[in-house]
Protein backbone atom coordinates (compact mmCIF):
# COMPACT_ATOMS: atom_id res chain seq x y z
CA UNK A 1 0.00 0.00 0.00
CA UNK A 2 2.81 2.36 0.83
CA UNK A 3 4.13 2.41 -2.72
CA UNK A 4 0.65 2.83 -4.13
CA UNK A 5 0.15 5.96 -2.00
CA UNK A 6 3.60 7.13 -2.97
CA UNK A 7 2.83 6.84 -6.69
CA UNK A 8 -0.47 8.67 -6.29
CA UNK A 9 1.34 11.33 -4.30
CA UNK A 10 4.01 11.82 -6.93
CA UNK A 11 1.37 12.23 -9.63
CA UNK A 12 -0.66 14.80 -7.71
CA UNK A 13 2.58 16.40 -6.54
CA UNK A 14 3.73 16.91 -10.11
CA UNK A 15 0.57 18.86 -10.83
CA UNK A 16 1.02 20.95 -7.67
CA UNK A 17 4.60 21.62 -8.71
CA UNK A 18 3.52 22.97 -12.10
CA UNK A 19 0.96 25.31 -10.52
CA UNK A 20 3.39 26.31 -7.75
CA UNK A 21 5.96 27.37 -10.35
CA UNK A 22 3.56 30.03 -11.60
CA UNK A 23 3.22 31.53 -8.12
CA UNK A 24 6.89 31.24 -7.45
CA UNK A 25 8.18 32.80 -10.65
CA UNK A 26 5.84 35.78 -10.41
CA UNK A 27 6.84 36.26 -6.79
CA UNK A 28 10.49 36.00 -7.72
CA UNK A 29 10.22 38.84 -10.21
CA UNK A 30 7.60 41.16 -8.68
CA UNK A 31 7.41 40.12 -4.99
CA UNK A 32 3.63 39.89 -5.27
CA UNK A 33 1.32 36.91 -4.90
CA UNK A 34 -0.74 36.36 -8.00
CA UNK A 35 -4.06 35.36 -6.44
CA UNK A 36 -5.77 35.17 -9.81
CA UNK A 37 -3.41 32.38 -10.90
CA UNK A 38 -5.79 29.59 -9.86
CA UNK A 39 -8.68 31.19 -11.74
CA UNK A 40 -6.64 31.46 -14.91
CA UNK A 41 -6.06 27.73 -14.48
CA UNK A 42 -9.80 27.10 -14.14
CA UNK A 43 -10.58 29.15 -17.24
CA UNK A 44 -8.04 27.25 -19.30
CA UNK A 45 -9.51 23.95 -18.14
CA UNK A 46 -12.96 25.01 -19.31
CA UNK A 47 -11.52 26.06 -22.68
CA UNK A 48 -9.82 22.67 -22.91
CA UNK A 49 -13.09 20.93 -22.07
CA UNK A 50 -14.90 22.80 -24.81
CA UNK A 51 -12.16 22.14 -27.35
CA UNK A 52 -12.21 18.44 -26.51
CA UNK A 53 -15.96 17.88 -26.42
CA UNK A 54 -17.32 20.35 -29.00
CA UNK A 55 -14.49 20.26 -31.52
CA UNK A 56 -13.22 16.73 -30.89
CA UNK A 57 -9.60 17.80 -30.91
CA UNK A 58 -6.80 15.36 -30.18
CA UNK A 59 -5.62 15.56 -26.59
CA UNK A 60 -2.18 17.05 -27.16
CA UNK A 61 -3.41 19.79 -29.50
CA UNK A 62 -6.18 20.58 -27.02
CA UNK A 63 -3.74 20.88 -24.13
CA UNK A 64 -1.42 23.17 -26.08
CA UNK A 65 -4.23 25.43 -27.35
CA UNK A 66 -5.89 25.74 -23.94
CA UNK A 67 -2.58 26.44 -22.24
CA UNK A 68 -1.79 29.09 -24.85
CA UNK A 69 -5.13 30.67 -24.01
CA UNK A 70 -4.12 30.58 -20.33
CA UNK A 71 -0.85 32.31 -21.19
CA UNK A 72 -2.69 35.15 -22.93
CA UNK A 73 -5.15 35.43 -20.05
CA UNK A 74 -2.30 35.47 -17.53
CA UNK A 75 -0.57 38.30 -19.37
CA UNK A 76 -3.81 40.27 -19.58
CA UNK A 77 -4.35 39.88 -15.84
CA UNK A 78 -0.95 41.42 -15.20
CA UNK A 79 -1.62 44.25 -17.67
CA UNK A 80 -5.04 45.08 -16.30
CA UNK A 81 -4.83 44.44 -12.59
CA UNK A 82 -1.17 44.72 -11.50
CA UNK A 83 0.81 47.01 -13.77
CA UNK A 84 -1.34 50.16 -13.40
CA UNK A 85 -0.90 50.16 -9.61
CA UNK A 86 2.16 52.22 -8.87
CA UNK A 87 1.69 54.23 -5.69
CA UNK A 88 0.40 53.75 -2.17
CA UNK A 89 1.14 50.62 -0.22
CA UNK A 90 1.69 48.81 -3.46
CA UNK A 91 1.81 45.29 -2.10
CA UNK A 92 -1.54 45.57 -0.33
CA UNK A 93 -3.19 47.38 -3.23
CA UNK A 94 -2.02 44.70 -5.65
CA UNK A 95 -3.32 42.05 -3.29
CA UNK A 96 -6.84 43.48 -3.23
CA UNK A 97 -6.73 44.10 -6.95
CA UNK A 98 -5.72 40.47 -7.47
CA UNK A 99 -8.53 39.27 -5.23
CA UNK A 100 -10.93 41.41 -7.25
CA UNK A 101 -9.59 39.87 -10.45
CA UNK A 102 -10.04 36.42 -8.98
CA UNK A 103 -13.68 37.16 -8.06
CA UNK A 104 -14.23 38.59 -11.51
CA UNK A 105 -12.84 35.55 -13.36
CA UNK A 106 -14.60 33.03 -11.13
CA UNK A 107 -18.00 34.62 -11.56
CA UNK A 108 -17.46 35.23 -15.25
CA UNK A 109 -16.81 31.51 -15.63
CA UNK A 110 -19.99 30.79 -13.72
CA UNK A 111 -21.91 33.04 -16.09
CA UNK A 112 -20.44 31.58 -19.25
CA UNK A 113 -20.11 27.90 -18.35
CA UNK A 114 -22.65 27.50 -15.52
CA UNK A 115 -21.86 26.49 -11.97
CA UNK A 116 -22.46 22.75 -12.31
CA UNK A 117 -19.60 20.27 -12.21
CA UNK A 118 -18.85 18.94 -15.69
CA UNK A 119 -17.26 15.65 -16.56
CA UNK A 120 -14.08 15.69 -18.56
CA UNK A 121 -13.48 12.47 -20.47
CA UNK A 122 -10.81 13.16 -23.02
CA UNK A 123 -9.16 9.75 -22.79
CA UNK A 124 -10.53 6.29 -22.12
CA UNK A 125 -9.14 5.25 -18.76
CA UNK A 126 -7.28 1.93 -18.59
CA UNK A 127 -5.63 0.48 -15.52
CA UNK A 128 -2.48 -1.61 -15.64
CA UNK A 129 -1.12 -3.74 -12.84
CA UNK A 130 2.63 -3.55 -12.43
CA UNK A 131 4.09 -5.68 -9.66
CA UNK A 132 1.04 -5.39 -7.41
CA UNK A 133 0.62 -1.66 -8.02
CA UNK A 134 -2.18 -0.29 -10.14
CA UNK A 135 -1.38 2.56 -12.47
CA UNK A 136 -3.67 3.99 -15.12
CA UNK A 137 -2.81 5.37 -18.52
CA UNK A 138 -3.99 8.76 -17.27
CA UNK A 139 -1.41 8.70 -14.52
CA UNK A 140 1.29 7.77 -17.00
CA UNK A 141 0.21 10.66 -19.23
CA UNK A 142 0.34 13.05 -16.29
CA UNK A 143 3.80 11.85 -15.30
CA UNK A 144 5.15 12.19 -18.83
CA UNK A 145 3.63 15.62 -19.46
CA UNK A 146 4.80 16.90 -16.07
CA UNK A 147 8.33 15.68 -16.71
CA UNK A 148 8.41 17.30 -20.16
CA UNK A 149 7.07 20.61 -18.87
CA UNK A 150 9.53 20.76 -16.00
CA UNK A 151 12.40 19.92 -18.35
CA UNK A 152 11.38 22.63 -20.83
CA UNK A 153 11.11 25.14 -18.03
CA UNK A 154 14.52 24.17 -16.69
CA UNK A 155 16.11 24.64 -20.10
CA UNK A 156 14.28 27.92 -20.62
CA UNK A 157 15.33 29.42 -17.30
CA UNK A 158 18.87 28.11 -17.00
CA UNK A 159 20.08 27.64 -20.58
CA UNK A 160 18.67 30.49 -22.65
CA UNK A 161 19.16 34.23 -22.85
CA UNK A 162 15.56 34.88 -21.85
CA UNK A 163 16.18 32.79 -18.76
CA UNK A 164 19.19 34.90 -17.84
CA UNK A 165 17.06 38.03 -18.20
CA UNK A 166 14.37 36.48 -16.02
CA UNK A 167 16.84 35.57 -13.33
CA UNK A 168 18.31 39.06 -13.52
CA UNK A 169 14.83 40.51 -12.98
CA UNK A 170 14.31 38.31 -9.96
CA UNK A 171 17.50 39.66 -8.38
CA UNK A 172 16.51 43.26 -9.00
CA UNK A 173 14.08 44.64 -11.55
CA UNK A 174 15.66 48.10 -11.43
CA UNK A 175 19.19 46.85 -11.99
CA UNK A 176 17.98 44.64 -14.82
CA UNK A 177 16.43 47.71 -16.42
CA UNK A 178 19.77 49.50 -16.18
CA UNK A 179 21.42 46.58 -17.95
CA UNK A 180 19.17 47.18 -20.94
CA UNK A 181 16.70 44.39 -20.27
CA UNK A 182 13.13 45.11 -21.34
CA UNK A 183 11.73 44.32 -17.91
CA UNK A 184 8.08 44.84 -18.84
CA UNK A 185 8.45 42.20 -21.53
CA UNK A 186 10.15 39.82 -19.10
CA UNK A 187 7.42 40.34 -16.51
CA UNK A 188 4.74 39.65 -19.12
CA UNK A 189 6.69 36.60 -20.21
CA UNK A 190 6.93 35.34 -16.64
CA UNK A 191 3.18 35.60 -16.25
CA UNK A 192 2.67 33.87 -19.60
CA UNK A 193 4.96 30.96 -18.73
CA UNK A 194 3.41 30.53 -15.29
CA UNK A 195 -0.10 30.62 -16.75
CA UNK A 196 0.86 28.17 -19.50
CA UNK A 197 2.08 25.65 -16.94
CA UNK A 198 -1.07 26.24 -14.88
CA UNK A 199 -3.23 25.65 -17.94
CA UNK A 200 -1.55 22.31 -18.59
CA UNK A 201 -1.85 21.37 -14.91
CA UNK A 202 -5.52 22.35 -14.85
CA UNK A 203 -6.40 20.16 -17.81
CA UNK A 204 -4.45 17.23 -16.40
CA UNK A 205 -6.20 17.46 -13.02
CA UNK A 206 -9.56 18.00 -14.74
CA UNK A 207 -9.08 14.82 -16.77
CA UNK A 208 -7.64 12.93 -13.78
CA UNK A 209 -10.64 13.57 -11.50
CA UNK A 210 -13.03 14.04 -14.46
CA UNK A 211 -14.48 17.15 -12.87
CA UNK A 212 -14.40 20.77 -14.05
CA UNK A 213 -16.20 23.53 -12.14
CA UNK A 214 -15.74 27.28 -11.64
CA UNK A 215 -14.30 27.02 -8.11
CA UNK A 216 -11.90 24.17 -8.91
CA UNK A 217 -8.96 26.55 -8.84
CA UNK A 218 -9.36 27.50 -5.22
CA UNK A 219 -8.15 24.45 -3.30
CA UNK A 220 -5.66 23.47 -5.99
CA UNK A 221 -4.28 27.00 -5.99
CA UNK A 222 -4.06 27.08 -2.19
CA UNK A 223 -2.13 23.84 -2.03
CA UNK A 224 0.15 24.85 -4.87
CA UNK A 225 0.79 28.11 -3.09
CA UNK A 226 1.55 26.20 0.10
CA UNK A 227 3.99 24.14 -1.96
CA UNK A 228 5.67 27.25 -3.34
CA UNK A 229 6.00 28.76 0.14
CA UNK A 230 7.23 25.50 1.60
CA UNK A 231 9.96 25.14 -0.99
CA UNK A 232 10.93 28.79 -0.69
CA UNK A 233 8.92 31.12 -2.87
CA UNK A 234 10.94 32.58 -5.70
CA UNK A 235 13.07 29.47 -6.04
CA UNK A 236 12.24 27.24 -8.99
CA UNK A 237 13.81 24.07 -7.63
CA UNK A 238 12.18 24.75 -4.27
CA UNK A 239 8.71 24.96 -5.78
CA UNK A 240 9.10 21.67 -7.61
CA UNK A 241 10.36 20.01 -4.45
CA UNK A 242 7.56 21.62 -2.43
CA UNK A 243 4.94 20.40 -4.89
CA UNK A 244 6.11 16.81 -4.63
CA UNK A 245 6.38 16.98 -0.83
CA UNK A 246 2.84 18.34 -0.48
CA UNK A 247 1.45 15.76 -2.93
CA UNK A 248 3.17 12.80 -1.27
CA UNK A 249 2.33 13.85 2.30
CA UNK A 250 -1.26 14.49 1.34
CA UNK A 251 -1.68 11.02 -0.17
CA UNK A 252 0.17 9.27 2.68
CA UNK A 253 -1.83 11.22 5.26
CA UNK A 254 -5.12 10.45 3.55
CA UNK A 255 -4.17 6.77 3.28
CA UNK A 256 -2.83 6.17 6.78
CA UNK A 257 -4.37 8.78 9.08
CA UNK A 258 -7.72 10.07 7.87
CA UNK A 259 -9.09 10.83 4.40
CA UNK A 260 -11.39 13.49 5.86
CA UNK A 261 -8.40 15.65 6.79
CA UNK A 262 -6.72 15.13 3.41
CA UNK A 263 -6.67 18.85 2.65
CA UNK A 264 -5.44 19.82 6.11
CA UNK A 265 -2.14 17.91 5.81
CA UNK A 266 -0.79 20.21 3.14
CA UNK A 267 -1.34 23.24 5.34
CA UNK A 268 -0.11 21.61 8.54
CA UNK A 269 3.15 20.55 6.89
CA UNK A 270 3.58 24.03 5.49
CA UNK A 271 3.00 25.64 8.89
CA UNK A 272 5.49 23.34 10.62
CA UNK A 273 8.20 23.87 8.01
CA UNK A 274 7.72 27.64 7.96
CA UNK A 275 7.98 27.84 11.73
CA UNK A 276 11.21 25.85 11.70
CA UNK A 277 12.66 27.45 8.58
CA UNK A 278 10.96 30.76 7.82
CA UNK A 279 12.36 31.22 4.33
CA UNK A 280 11.23 27.79 3.09
CA UNK A 281 13.32 24.75 2.27
CA UNK A 282 15.37 26.22 -0.56
CA UNK A 283 14.58 29.90 -0.26
CA UNK A 284 17.40 32.37 0.00
CA UNK A 285 17.56 34.27 3.26
CA UNK A 286 16.59 37.82 2.60
CA UNK A 287 17.22 40.69 4.94
CA UNK A 288 14.28 43.07 4.59
CA UNK A 289 15.54 45.91 6.73
CA UNK A 290 18.86 46.78 8.25
Amino acid sequence: MFFQHLINGIIVGGIYAMVALGYSMVYGVLQIVNWAHADVLMFATFIGLILATKLNMPVLVMIILAAAFAAILGMSVERVAYRPIKSGNRKMAVLVSALGMSTFLQNLAQLIFGSTTRQFKAIESKTYMVGGLSISNLQILILVVTAIMLLILYILVYKTKVGVAMRACSVSVNNAKLMGINTNLIISGTFAIGAFMAGVAGILIGVYYSAVYPTMGYLLGMKAFAAAILGGIGSIMGSVLGGFIIGIIECLGAGYISPAYRDAFAFLVMIVILVIRPSGLMGAKRIDKV
Partner: peptide, 9 residues
Protein backbone atom coordinates in the same frame (compact mmCIF):
# COMPACT_ATOMS: atom_id res chain seq x y z
CA UNK B 1 -20.37 39.49 -8.61
CA UNK B 2 -18.58 40.07 -11.91
CA UNK B 3 -19.14 43.80 -11.56
CA UNK B 4 -18.09 43.63 -7.90
CA UNK B 5 -14.75 42.01 -8.80
CA UNK B 6 -14.14 44.51 -11.58
CA UNK B 7 -14.93 47.43 -9.28
CA UNK B 8 -12.39 46.19 -6.73
CA UNK B 9 -9.69 46.22 -9.42
Amino acid sequence: MVVYGALMV
